[in-house]
Design a protein around this nucleic acid. Structure first.
Lengths: 202, 202
DNA sequence: GGTTATATGGACACAGCGTACACAGCGGTG
DNA sequence: CACCGCTGTGTACGCTGTGTCCATATAACC
């Protein structure tokens, strides 16, 4: 009789030898994401991730080139990308909604702290910086630029504006308050940003 | 006749006992600033600062609460604050000049790398974050807000705008490109930021 | 079933942090 | 001039985390 082990489905994970690679990778990623949300980048060490995942550090070193890469992967594993960008005919409403949603994500969840610490770590970790640009900020920027470009095509915005700079003045302003934090990042602030740009200052 | 000691001014520094406290502090700060500019926050360790200053680590631990505090103090020691803010009657020219100067400071000197790494470190170092806000970003923001307020008083800008948010949309946008760096931080970009806000998008 | 790939525990050297202790010398006090 | 407190110096220790190396065990593949 084969070993009839009723709950062998939950792997014991205490064997010495090889476990399924995909399973181990998944467990490491989950552990990384949870540790990131729980302790932030300060307490995020490869040793803790390995311990939390019940894996050995060697495995992590084999699959991820740097701590930053692991953190970013873990972040995406736990926090779904959520890159949706509602596009109605009203550019002002679209921008405002997106900015307000971003403000809430950053303020009301732990995602804000994680994002800011990922960006912080990226300042001294070129690999993480490249990965962050390529996989996070790049796609988000592209979506916003696309929305602005469509609004220009519809004649809602001046044709000669530079959409990229506008993105920096909306999202960049929010990141400024997130990273420097000398003033609070509020919903009103987000609305004011759109208003300033649309109406002009004089 | 004061002591005319031609080169006794450079102390031998190789004794075992005590040296003047102020002198040691000054040498540590200079060493910290130089190390910061040379290697950035990545290679900035208390051990290296101590070695470079010819001091012992104990002394540094006694006077500075954290690595971040030492780095910030060292930065201010080497890079003069330079908080001047020219104020002519032309608000557009003033803002543009200030932003362009900031862009050049950040792009053409090592200060940009140091600033971004200080901000990065501040994301996981609350003491450094507080010191940075209090001693660097706070005063700079206040100067910019003051300039905008005067322009409003002169009737050059709408009276109902929020100067703080405008600061975020000008300098924050630059910091965004400095910290994320998915697009270059150019002089043209700085001019476009002012133009976008002044003229409005439609 | 045999082979290969790979996860595991354990060990190692190394760097940096933070602390402790004894000693040395400067600056003041008497 | 003698003394003593403050403070820098050298040295040592324990701790955490990194990055790398093994030998071994076992899943996955042929």
């Amino acid at each position: 009789m084969a070993e009839l082990t009723p709950e062998t489905q939950t792997p014991v994970r205490r064997g010495r030898g090889r476990r399924p690679a995909d399973q181990v990778r998944a467990e490491i990623l989950t552990a990384a994401g949870e540790l990131l949300l729980a302790e932030g980048m300060a307490g995020f060490t490869i040793e803790k991730v390995a311990a939390h995942a019940g894996a050995s550090r060697m495995t992590i070193y084999k699959w991820w080139p740097s701590k930053g890469a692991l953190a970013l992967d873990g972040y995406f594993t736990v926090v779904a990308p959520t890159l949706a960008f509602a596009d109605t005919a009203d550019i002002v409403a679209d921008l405002t909604n997106q900015l307000v949603a971003f403000v809430h994500l950053v303020r009301d969840t732990t995602a804000g702290r994680v994002i800011s610490q990922l960006i912080g770590q990226a300042q001294t970790d070129p690999e993480l910086a490249a990965a962050y640009r390529e996989r996070y900020s790049g796609p988000r920027r592209a979506l916003a630029v696309e929305t602005l470009t469509r609004a220009i095509a519809r004649g809602q915005l001046r044709a000669d504006i530079d959409p990229e700079s506008v993105v920096d003045q909306l999202w960049g302003a929010c990141y400024h308050r997130l990273l420097i934090a000398d003033l609070p990042l509020t919903e009103d602030f987000a609305r004011t940003l759109v208003d300033n740009l649309i109406r002009g200052l004089r």
